[in-house]
Design a protein around this nucleic acid. Sequence first.
DNA 1: TTGAAAGCGATACCAA
DNA 2: TTGGTATCGCTTTCAA
Lengths: 327, 327
Amino acid sequence: MRDVARAVEMSPMTVSRALRGDETVNEKTRDRIRRVAADLGYVYDSTAQAFRTQKSGFVAVVLPSINNANFAETFRGLSDALTGSGVQLLLGSTNYRLEKEEELVGQLLTRNPEAIVLTGGHHTDVTRKLLENAKIPVIEIWDLPPDPVGHVVGFSNADAMSLIVQHLVRQGRRKLAFVGAAAGSDMRGVARRDGVIAAATALDLTQVAQIDAGPAPVSMRHGAEVVVKLGPAIATYDALVCVSDPVAFGVLNECRRLGIKIPDDVAITGFGHFEIAAVSSPRLTTAGVHANKIGRKVAGVLQDIFAGETSAQWIDVGSELVLGETS
Amino acid sequence: MRDVARAVEMSPMTVSRALRGDETVNEKTRDRIRRVAADLGYVYDSTAQAFRTQKSGFVAVVLPSINNANFAETFRGLSDALTGSGVQLLLGSTNYRLEKEEELVGQLLTRNPEAIVLTGGHHTDVTRKLLENAKIPVIEIWDLPPDPVGHVVGFSNADAMSLIVQHLVRQGRRKLAFVGAAAGSDMRGVARRDGVIAAATALDLTQVAQIDAGPAPVSMRHGAEVVVKLGPAIATYDALVCVSDPVAFGVLNECRRLGIKIPDDVAITGFGHFEIAAVSSPRLTTAGVHANKIGRKVAGVLQDIFAGETSAQWIDVGSELVLGETS
DNA sequence: TTGAAAGCGATACCAA
DNA sequence: TTGGTATCGCTTTCAA
């Protein structure tokens, strides 16, 4: 900046103002400074700015996995909505592990982000303390935590599952199995399983079977493997309620290979309304979640925060039953 | 840091050293300082460090889209391999647009990244100039640019397509159609189309038909729509060479709905070896690319760079023909 | 093994 | 409309 100042024979202060578009700098001067800066190949140093102003221009985002269409879509919604706002997203992923989240949050906070977005409402005690001490806005997404740290943009995984169970029961199906990761690894999976059990209990169903598909993240392959392992016996259930669409798709394909009729012999449902649900044949019955909308709503919350809003927001984006041909 | 220093009655300098694990600080002193810092809820300021040392600890990564399993997988491979190295990834996505890339690169460079990773070898002139002026290592991935800016970790999209075309021709198929985005939007798509045409020409095939599936990113839906539009006439081709697995899957599903026999009436091939290729039924013939490996190789290049290696690396991770049941 | 001084590049604040 | 000065929190360098 000093070099630019020398070149235009003005003070660095004026250059600083000009480059930021400060209106108090004469317009012609501003243009000239900008042109000279560009000619010199000057690159503005955001680090120095962040240091001086104590405003990093970063928002930290913690996702369980980036390689998941729905989380990626949330990130995209957020990213797109923030385009042009000058905010940069610092992304970290936890591989569905709370300890990794703790480490990540610690690292991210040293970057002095202006807000932090976390997936889910479950955190380690250390993480929670870090967040509370950080004195920056915290936004928990993809869940409706009973005791949120700050803002919330999510939906109830249990309620979404309840929609599915009620639908299946209306069809006269009573013997359900939940196909998902074993307890503990992915809290959203656990919430979905609990939602199924709660809904089943409320409707006086026989106990819901639980079919473990391995540790999160569970995917198409795991769904298929479950069916391979159980074989035709899997059709003794009335419905296979899967923790996600990819799992459901894997289950579906393998069932068809075995000659099991879907949905006549057994219904299959997914979760997430991934693209695969819509294009698979037969289409999957699933729970539609609004991944992109979560991202955009988070952007809205951030904009409110930057505009000075202080009250904690609680946004339930809801979910919906998406009827397919597998139930 | 001054507060911590006061609390332990030492100089900030010693605290700084202790927190970074400098061995010249007495071990007991180090532990005490660390404990006190934690008790005080002190959070290290990476911004100040980055400012003072002129080392940001950032590596910038530019992807066309984060909502694409393969790019996401590359990011994950890179991210995983960099875990614990103290490097943070600054992610930006271009939505397959070079102008967006230009803007993004400009923004990212102000953060003073220690290296920048770009997808593809095509950039605007301005982008290229920015990169050359930045004097930081540049790694282009997912392509083998004829005139790389710096390092390269990729594969030849054209060669991969050539493998597919040769395979189809060995089966006696001669009337090919390429299904992909219209020219210009996604350079990888263009490279694949050109690869098909070149391979077909080399094998004396009749002209390759080009079926536009809309602007990138093209997905399952677009593949399906192409078939809906053309109807049963699509089976007059011997093979539908699709720009990606999602597109191929959409094409496949819609063909089956129309009663077209795959691969008897027409072969279908994808690109990318996405999970969908393996679990679809029939499985897709596709080109296997090593997305995760690209990420890990990039991490390796970065580690070499940080270790002082200066020579530009050129890594071809290759691709392979993955035989499925659609050809 | 520890400490003092200087400075990274921007901007807040005050002055002209 | 423009400029001077101090300073953000850390680390490099030199000294003790």
